[in-house]
Each structure stands twice: as C-alpha cells, then as structure tokens.
C-alpha cells in the first residue's frame, strides 16, 4: 500500500524510468532469541537520476534499507504479501547470490560512513580493486590500463592525484572518504548508495565531499540514495524520505 502525497507516492509510480523500486519490504533481525523487527513494510520508488535522501533516527532501519537496495541482504519472506526490490525491473529478491554479486559489481556503488578502505592497499589500488572484482583477476589484466586511467581521473577530480601511492593511514578523513567515493564510482554504476558519507567528517570537509558527489552525479546522471542525519544535506536532495519505526514517512508526514 503506497500512500498518496502531493500527487506522488514515495516516488514516481508510473514511469519506466524507475531506477529502483521497493515494495512491502520487512526485515527482522535476531539477537539471540529475541526478534528485532527493523522494517515493517517499506515501499519506495526512486527515479533514474533522482537524489533521494533517507533521514531517520538511529536504529530506524536506514542502513538496512540501503543494504536491501544494494543486494547485500534479503527481505523477510511473506507469502501473503511478497516483498520485492526491483532494480530496473529486475527483482533482486529472486536473484541468485552470484547474480547479486554481479549486480553489486556492475550496477551500484557503495559509500560507507567509515570509508572502509583496505589498509594494505595504496589509494590507487583501493580504487581499482572494484574493477578487479568486476572483471576477475584474469580478466582484469585486459582492463587494467583502462581502470587505472579512470581511477587516476576520478582521484584527480577529487583532488587526490598527488596521493596515489599513499596508504589510507596516511590520509585525512576527508581524503579517505573521497577515495571511497572514487572506488564506488570506478565501474561507472548507475546507482550510488551512500550510508552517511559525511557522518564522520567535520562540517567543511563534509561539505566538500557532498560537492564532489553532487558534481559527479550531475555530470554522470547518477541516481543517488543517501542515508544521513544531517537536515542541511537533506534539504539539497530532490526528495527526502524519513524512516520512522520501520516505516517510510514523506516530508509532509504521510505514512506509507
């Protein structure tokens, strides 16, 4: 059931230009013997090229929703009201593990709050590893030059061309996050899922990171789903979704 709000639901319902569509998604975690319901039946549509920001308190299920959209997790099964997470009309809930791996490698990019760079690799290697995963170790040999060129171009764009051979430990928080964004973009995904990308940065650095994402989004026509606590970031998004008690609430307060 999708609530109508200002001529729209939690996103456009008509178009073939839907990038990702979430329907009736529930998710419950088990903590020992205790079942902890996180999402209670979320519906959400995101158009191609749209920037949707998800706001919500800690534990409201923002990251869980992002993981479900990224194919990292699967929603709870419900035969009476089957859930679906459709990416370009492809239902991720019915995909094999292998297909989900391909989906994450080819179609989406993940940006995390704590960067999650691999400490043993250089900046350049941290970025190109996405390409290596996509093409496989052997296939990467044929794409290496192309990947390195693109990684260098992305890092240059993010002002890190002088840091290519540095290790993550030698970078500032802002620099690390820019490397993480470059890594997410190396395979030219059409959907970027960002989990509080500025949450661990000071205001100024966070702003510069946001600018980098916005600039890239505009030039590449990227669809962006961003989880954040920051209302000011939310204001700049095309659309803001608020998660309250595992349900999606539009800005006007309608509950889906």
């Amino acid at each position: 059931m999708v609530a109508q709000t200002n001529n729209s639901t939690n996103g456009p319902t008509d178009g073939n230009d839907l990038k990702i569509s979430v329907r009736s998604v529930r998710k419950t975690y088990r903590l020992g013997r205790v079942r902890v319901p996180v999402l209670h039946g979320v519906d959400l549509d995101v158009k191609s090229g749209e920037w949707v920001t998800i706001l919500g308190a800690s534990g409201s299920g923002k990251s869980t929703l992002l993981h479900l959209m990224g194919g990292l997790d699967r929603p709870d099964k419900d035969s009476s009201n089957p859930p679906s997470v459709k990416f370009e009309n492809r239902d991720l809930t019915k995909q094999s593990k292998r297909a989900l791996d391909r989906y994450r490698a080819d179609d989406i990019g993940f940006v995390f709050q704590f960067y999650h760079l691999l400490p043993e690799l250089s900046v350049l290697q941290n970025v190109t590893i996405g390409s290596m995963i996509k093409h496989g170790r052997l296939g990467y040999r044929n794409h290496r030059a192309e990947a390195v060129e693109r990684a260098e171009s992305l890092l240059e764009r993010f002002g890190l061309s002088h840091r290519l051979k540095h290790r993550p430990a030698e970078l500032s928080g802002g620099e690390r996050q820019r490397v993480a964004i470059a890594r997410a973009l190396i395979n030219e995904p059409s959907l970027l899922l960002a989990d509080e990308p500025t949450g661990n940065l000071d205001l100024k650095t966070g702003e510069s990171i946001l600018e980098a994402i916005i600039e890239h989004r505009q030039s590449a026509g990227l669809t962006l789903v961003m989880v954040t606590h920051d209302e000011r970031i939310a204001e700049r998004a095309d659309r803001v979704i608020r998660l309250v008690d595992g349900l999606v609430v539009e800005e006007n307060g309608t509950i889906s």
């Binding site: 292998r98 791996d101 994450r104």
Partner: peptide
C-alpha cells in the same frame, strides 16, 4: 571481517 564485508559490497563472490 570488515574488509571482507567491503569486498562483498563491491561484488566479490563467495569463491572469490
């Protein structure tokens, strides 16, 4: 563990 999670998020397969 976390690095493994990152690699999985980037699309690394189980056998990989």
């Amino acid at each position: 563990t976390k690095d493994i999670g990152v690699l999985r998020a980037l699309g690394a397969t189980t056998p990989g």
